[in-house]
């Protein structure tokens, strides 16, 4: 095909593009995979049984705020990196600051408790499954985030993959927090955070293969 033919073809199939097209693609891609991930949590793990009383506790809302901020920052990162020349610096800074605050809070909590309880606060009763569950819940979201980016124009694929992974992990941790009844700050600071960073790593590694265009 000659370049002239190509131009004729492309011109022929030109349609107006909405200024919000990228926004909607992010909403649709992550929205649908959020539904899948939530369904997975609901049918496979189940909601936490003490949901009603939990919403009255400070810890529920701390966990909620922590994962929500990371999820929003991650989603923003996916949107930003979808543009050529896009940068996720702002999102990364927000995420890093949020994690640092959480770690500081957790350490303060540890400092205020007698040392013999430290171990229990770190391991909770679900240490064996927490991070793994978040990573599993993040998989549909990772697929969704990859789908979003594959139709757009990220030019730095490893960074784009990392953004997709962090967003997927963060949203998954938000979903998981409706199942998990752990309430110790140090537990959240370590195992939730790990559950977000691992998908980020998976995304970064997969990015340059999956996201090529």
């Amino acid at each position: 095909m000659t370049t002239d033919d190509l131009i004729a073809r492309l011109t022929g199939e030109l349609k107006p593009v909405s200024r919000l097209a990228v926004f909607w693609r992010v909403v649709i891609g992550l929205g649908i995979s959020l539904v899948v991930s939530s369904a997975m949590m609901y049918f496979w793990l189940g909601m936490r049984p003490d949901m009603m009383t939990a919403t009255g506790t400070m810890m529920f809302w701390t966990k909620f705020a922590y994962t929500l901020i990371l999820a929003v920052a991650g989603t923003w990162a996916v949107k930003r990196i979808a543009y050529p020349l896009g940068s996720i610096r702002v999102s990364l800074a927000v995420m890093a600051a949020t994690i640092v605050v959480m770690i500081v809070l957790a350490m303060a909590k540890l400092a205020m408790t007698p040392p013999d309880q430290h171990m229990a606060m770190m391991t909770g009763h679900t240490i064996a499954v927490c991070t793994r569950n978040i990573v599993l819940l993040s998989l549909p979201l990772l697929v969704g985030a990859f789908w979003v980016l594959r139709g757009l124009a990220p030019t730095r694929l490893t960074v784009a993959g990392a953004a997709a992974g962090l967003a997927a992990g963060a949203i998954a941790s938000l979903v998981y927090s409706f199942h998990c009844d752990e309430s110790a700050m140090p537990f959240i600071a370590v195992w939730y955070t790990l559950g977000i960073l691992i998908p980020g790593l998976i995304g970064a590694i997969a990015g340059r293969f999956v996201l090529r265009w």
């Binding site: 190509l6 492309l10 593009v17 543009y83 139709g151 757009l152 124009a153 265009w213």
Partner: peptide
Amino acid sequence: LMSLHTRRAT
């Protein structure tokens, strides 16, 4: 040109 076309929303 093809990429410009399919990704012009960006």
